[in-house]
Each structure stands twice: as C-alpha cells, then as structure tokens.
C-alpha cells in the first residue's frame, strides 16, 4: 500500500511528459483555427503553458495536494468537477459488467471442468476464445443493431433519458439511487440503459474468468483430498460445490482483481459507442483535443482505483482461503 504514492507520482510524471514533450500544439488547437499568434500566446499565458515544463509540473503537483486537478484548456472547467461527475458512471458500468462476468463465468468454468472433454466443455471453450477475440466495439454495435434498432427493446445509448427527472443524487450510481428513492420505474429505466454496455463490457472478462476457473478446478480435482472424499462416498455434487469450488475460486480472484483495473481503462470504447457519460468518453474527448489536464486526472483516478482493487483482492483472499489469514 505504501508504494501507491510513488507509483501515482510516477504516473503524473509519465503523462505530463507525454503531454508536454511530444510534438503537437494543444494551445493552438484550443485557441481555435482563426487565432492569431498573439492570441495563442495570450492563451498559453493564461494557463501557464508558456513557463518551463518543470515549473508547470511543480505547480500541478502543488495544486494536486489541495485537490486541484488543473483546468481543462478547452472547456475551462476544473477537472476535479468533471471527475466527480463521471467516475460513478464508469464504476457503475464496470461493477455491472464484473457482476455478470463472475455470476456466469464461475459456474461455467466449474461446469466445463466437471464435464471435461465432453460437449459442455468444448462448447464453453470455443465460446470463450470467441468471446476474447470479439472486439468490444463491434459487439456493442451488433447489440445496438439487434436490440435497439431492429427490435426496439432497449435504448440506443446514454444513461438516462434527458426528458425524465433522474433520481436524487446520493451515490452517483443511478440504479442504486433509484432504489434509495424507491422509484421502481426509474430503476427499470436505468437498468435498461445499463444492459447493453454492461454485456458488451463483460464478455471478455467472463471468458477469462471461465478459463481460469476451469483450469484451477481441474487442478484442485486432482488433489488427494478430493479422492478421499470420493472414496468416502460423498456425492459428486457436494464435492464440487462445497470443497472444490471454494479452493478453485481463490486462484480466480487474482484474475478478477486484475480485470477490474483492465476494465476501468477499457471502458473507453464501450462508452464511446453507447454515449455513456463516464471517464472513458471524457478521456477520449480530451485526448482528441490534446487537452492534457483531464487525461492526467483520469489516469490518476483509474490508477488509484486499480491499486485499491488489488488491495481489496488481497483482503478477500484471506476470507476465501484461511491459509493466507495466519500470515
């Protein structure tokens, strides 16, 4: 945990270096196509971009200590306000995707291992490789085409209809907020908007979790204690659900933790397709305009969440696997 701060500091250096040392003229881009050189210079002065890079960096770091993430040179909005607005949307999407992946991936992996080399196994393995190979943006597009455009069952994109009043802001998770407000129709609307992006996001972690679960289940099933249980006449069902699954899950947990961070950074494409107002869409817009303060902000938030997720996995390890607890 104490390594978090140096890692995050390193992140700021890295992104700052990319933003300031590579070619490209963000100021001219932000000032507009008709700006005169004098206007561009004035613009640069306003944001302190005419000073040496290390001075800019020092200013940024000092601001960071006070919770100031800088100002977007494009919208002139403080980055921290945008981060607060967009982070819950991304987290809601990632949690929903992860929940789908875990709830389907773990039983599917168990089943594939139990029915090893029979048709459920083949089917799930080919499906898993296919799912990993499926570009998320293409899957998103297919889902939109089928469920929004042809069948008309689900909304094309967005998080909540602009014409409706969203539930009162408590957690920033629309589904949770709707439940807190006891507004079931708002909850249903939020779920309908969440469905397609969450499915598009969940496919690749689902496949990986399934493969991981299959592999670790197979390993556990070869252990001596499983043979003992079998010799004692325990039913296959009991052995698998009570003794094997629990041991196999602990190896899979690490993958879940890693995937959480990966998903946070991977929302970019899905958010772009479904117009989901989260960190990924925000970062994409900022990257295209070379507006670097939001990019550094998003990277820091995702980096922090990533580290927290891995910490959480370490704690969960202890819950699932008593052997780790004594250390």
């Amino acid at each position: 945990m104490f390594l978090t701060i140096p890692v995050l500091l390193g992140l700021t250096v890295l992104v700052f270096a990319i933003g300031r040392l590579l070619p490209g003229d963000p100021v001219a881009l932000a000032a507009g196509p008709n700006a005169t050189p004098a206007e561009i210079a004035a613009y640069a002065r306003e944001f302190g971009l005419d000073r040496p890079v290390w001075v800019q960096y020092a200013t940024y770091l000092t601001g960071l200590l006070g919770g100031n993430f800088g100002v977007s040179i494009f919208t002139r909005r403080p980055v921290i306000e945008d981060l607060i607005a967009y982070t819950p949307a991304t987290l809601e999407l990632v949690f929903a995707a992860m929940a789908l992946a875990v709830l389907i991936g773990i039983p599917a992996g168990l089943a594939a291992a139990v029915y090893r080399d029979r048709w459920p196994d083949y089917l799930s393995r080919v499906a898993a490789l296919g799912a990993i190979s499926m570009p998320r943006f293409f899957l998103g597009l297919l889902l939109q085409l089928a469920f929004a455009m042809w069948l008309g069952w689900l909304p094309l994109g967005g998080r909540f209809p602009l014409t409706d009043d969203p539930p009162r802001l408590v957690t920033g998770f629309l589904t949770v907020d709707a439940l807190i407000a006891q507004d079931l129709s708002a909850f249903w609307t939020a779920c309908r908007h969440l469905a397609m992006p969450a499915i598009a996001m969940s496919l690749s972690p689902l496949a990986t979790i399934m493969r991981m679960m299959r592999a670790s289940t197979l390993e556990v099933m070869q252990q001596d204690y499983v043979m003992t249980e079998r010799a004692l006449g325990l039913s296959q069902r009991l052995i698998v659900t009570k003794y094997v699954a629990r041991n196999a899950i602990s190896a899979t947990l690490t993958v879940i933790g890693l995937y959480f961070g990966w998903l946070l950074g991977g929302t970019v494409l899905v958010e772009t397709i479904f117009d989901w107002p989260g960190l990924g869409l925000y970062a994409t817009k900022a990257v295209v305009t070379q507006d670097f303060m939001p990019v550094i902000g998003v990277t820091l938030v995702i980096g922090t969440l990533f580290v927290c997720a891995n910490l959480l996995v370490d704690v969960l390890y202890g819950v699932v696997n008593p052997k780790v607890r004594t250390k």
Partner: peptide
Amino acid sequence: TVPGLIFAMAIAA
C-alpha cells in the same frame, strides 16, 4: 498501472 488504450491514445494524438 496506466490503462493501455488511454496511454496509446495519448501518444498517438
């Protein structure tokens, strides 16, 4: 720790 796609996007841009 840096999300790969955002990193690549930033450099490419």
